[in-house]
């Protein structure tokens, strides 16, 4: 589903590569943690998958897309098959819960009938049925992240990228969010989550890819956050 082949990325403003000769293969339906300290290249990794950046060397594949070489006009198609969740939720503060989720479909031109049908469904899936008319500021952090997940998942993406989705949440709420991501993973969606959260990685026992200074230093099928920690 996701494949990087000898990928390096050097930013113009830096002499040290953000990623160096990274090769990883992630299958459909996998749940992968991407870990490593700040500056280890996690964000660059995710940005390459979204074609927010182009690698300096190597190939990037997501599903059938040859991400680094595809024409720019096809990038929207790629992004429609990837859902994204962030630490800071990135909700539109002037829209209700349902409108936030619907927005993701409106802007890719989905018909109104479809939107009216699928938005309540996905809100129920993330446990927000009954809160569709609330504004984001009326919700707790955990609930806001659920809205963000609903928005990322409403178009049924093949891949869900989560960049520190629990970074702003307390441990209990984080647990709930992880259960939700697991549920989404069980529908067959590949979930790739960048995180610093030891507790979550250790308790889930999923595949762990660890980056350090831009290189993959560990790839465990059922790993923990830090060896011997």
């Amino acid at each position: 589903m996701i494949r990087l082949e000898g990928v390096s990325k050097v930013y113009k403003t830096s002499t040290r590569p953000a990623l160096h000769n990274v090769s990883v293969d992630m299958d459909k339906g996998e749940f992968i943690f991407l870990i490593g300290p700040s500056g280890s290249g996690k964000s660059t990794f995710l940005r390459l998958l979204l074609r927010e950046e182009v690698p300096s060397k190597g190939r990037v594949y997501v599903s059938n897309f040859d991400v680094a070489r595809m024409a720019r006009r096809r990038v929207p198609r790629l992004r429609q098959s990837i859902g994204c969740v962030f630490q800071d939720f990135r909700l539109l503060t002037n829209k209700t819960v349902a409108e936030n989720v619907a927005f993701a479909l409106e802007v890719i031109g989905k018909p109104r009938n479809t939107i009216r049908k699928v938005v309540p469904e996905v809100l129920e899936l993330v446990g927000l049925d009954g809160k569709s008319d609330r504004m984001p500021h009326e919700l707790s952090g955990g609930e806001q992240q659920r809205v963000a997940i609903a928005r990322a998942f409403v178009n049924r993406p093949l891949v869900l990228l989560a960049d520190e989705p629990t970074g702003n949440l307390d441990p209990d709420t984080s647990q709930d969010i992880m259960l939700l991501l697991e549920r989404i993973n069980r529908t067959g969606t590949t979930v790739l989550m960048a995180t610093h959260d030891h507790g979550i990685v250790d308790s889930m026992r999923r595949r762990v890819v660890e980056l350090s200074l831009g290189e993959v230093i560990r790839d465990d099928a059922r790993g923990v956050y830090g060896v011997g920690r």
Binding site: L50, L78, R79, S81, R90, F103, V107, I108
Partner: peptide, 17 residues
Amino acid sequence: RTEVGIMRLVGATRWYT
């Protein structure tokens, strides 16, 4: 910029944004 950022992420075309 938030709207546009989200639009780009969810795969809205250049025309739509």
